[in-house]
Write a protein that binds this DNA or RNA. Sequence first.
DNA 1: TCAGTATTGAATAATTTATTCCAGCTTGGC
DNA 2: GCCAAGCTGGAATAAATTATTCAATACTGA
Lengths: 281, 281
Amino acid sequence: MVCLLKIRGMLEHMSVIERKLADFILDNAHLLRDYSSQQLADAVGTSQSSVVKFCQKLGYKGYPDLKLAVSEAVITASTLQRDTTEPSHSANNLHTLVEQLQFSLHSHLRGIMAVNDEQTLLDAADCLQGADRVLIAGFGKSAIVAHDMQFRLLQLGKLALLHSDPAITLQLASTLSHDSVLLLISESGQNTDLLKLARFAKQQHIRIISLTSYKTNALSLAADLALLALSGDENVRVNPLLVQMAQQHLCHILYLLLCQQQNNDHQLEENSKLLHVLEQP
Amino acid sequence: MVCLLKIRGMLEHMSVIERKLADFILDNAHLLRDYSSQQLADAVGTSQSSVVKFCQKLGYKGYPDLKLAVSEAVITASTLQRDTTEPSHSANNLHTLVEQLQFSLHSHLRGIMAVNDEQTLLDAADCLQGADRVLIAGFGKSAIVAHDMQFRLLQLGKLALLHSDPAITLQLASTLSHDSVLLLISESGQNTDLLKLARFAKQQHIRIISLTSYKTNALSLAADLALLALSGDENVRVNPLLVQMAQQHLCHILYLLLCQQQNNDHQLEENSKLLHVLEQP
DNA sequence: TCAGTATTGAATAATTTATTCCAGCTTGGC
DNA sequence: GCCAAGCTGGAATAAATTATTCAATACTGA
């Protein structure tokens, strides 16, 4: 499961041969079981050594390691499908749509703990916990996630800054201290404004947490802690939804971790009282 | 699955060493993944060649073949277990947290089609489809959902208005026509500003869609179409997350319905090109 | 006891996988 | 536009893993 997601997530950053290998594996995951590295190389039209290098680049020890991971993915996928009464082709259009969306979402969220190092998540929570203030930056579609995260942090009584204007966000950055944290949210990890922010924060020795959707990108490289919300649904319309939901899910996990850490329920209660007052006429 | 059964079935007819091998594999099936034939031989106290012969005797081509079969068995067993016996109380805190969150989320999203009338959803999509513009209103935590929905609609080329200030939102409402739609998002359905908007829209005969979290409330009563994103987790910290995710999920369903209806992929592509440009340095 | 058979492991062959090294290509700086 | 640096991919080769052979030993039934 995770393995194929990982491959899909890296598709963009691959060379021609790597891409061919990736495509073949994604299309024929079930065949890989009976392929040796040489056979795979022949099937794709490359050399055996390139296959091995491809595996290692993806983070596997070698070919057998990848092969096993892919086999696992194939099996879990098929069992999961069997279990969740899989996307039925019922006569009803709407129900099918919803079922498929929920199925994809469920599968993708499950992959989160696999692509993110456990320690990184804990560290990120610690980092936020210790921060005197957090500047969140995310523009475009990432703004939604940023907005969400800001709300969570405020709910915990943590000063979280966010502005939709990149220039003002930069100004806000200048108010940060060494104890502050910069949280950068971007799907591609290439957004110029965020990179500027990252550069500034690096100069000032302000800690950076990134939340992106590809393993290696300018932002995650610049970050002290890099969180990932991979995805990789082939449906162009569904994929962005999944990526976003995955990002928010990660934020929610961080939020719950922080809740646990400070374990001060009264803070939360006060806040919910506050909101309750706001909702009253 | 089959593999381990097969081994068990042959236990009686095995020699001493074979028996030792079988026992070890049955007891440590999960370890086999990382064992070479030599390592297994050492672990059992026999020779590597005996391991291979054992595999062949069982009907496998060789050691890697058996290894793969055992791995498959382990995985199917564990996935089945994970799926049926829900939130495991594993030693690991973080994993437990995440599993529970995902489990709750999955269950709650599944309930969406039960609490929402199918026709209402379709009508809501039609309604949005036909609107010349959509004014979205949602404050506080609902603002995140509102933000999300605005983004989706804009992506479809639909003019969607949203402002964080209630007063300005009211001003925006005055620009609506009979062909417009007002989308009101609120958890409780009691927010005064939203009720004011609803009252105004009613006077002007502007259609209202509500998205709330309780079956009967002032907003849903005032709305022409009432969507529901119920929840009800006992955990005070998790519940708000679930409610919000459910609301967003509903928005996403509407979005996908609209996609289907207009079925104009090029609009989407144009937009993604647009975003691509924005992401470039 | 002894021939016949089965089992085992050391040695070795065969296969598969991993690494090294070099050629060709792209990239970025001057 | 050119050169250096770095990256990519493949041939050759090394290393590792797996499979086979074969001889020694143990067991079985007469």
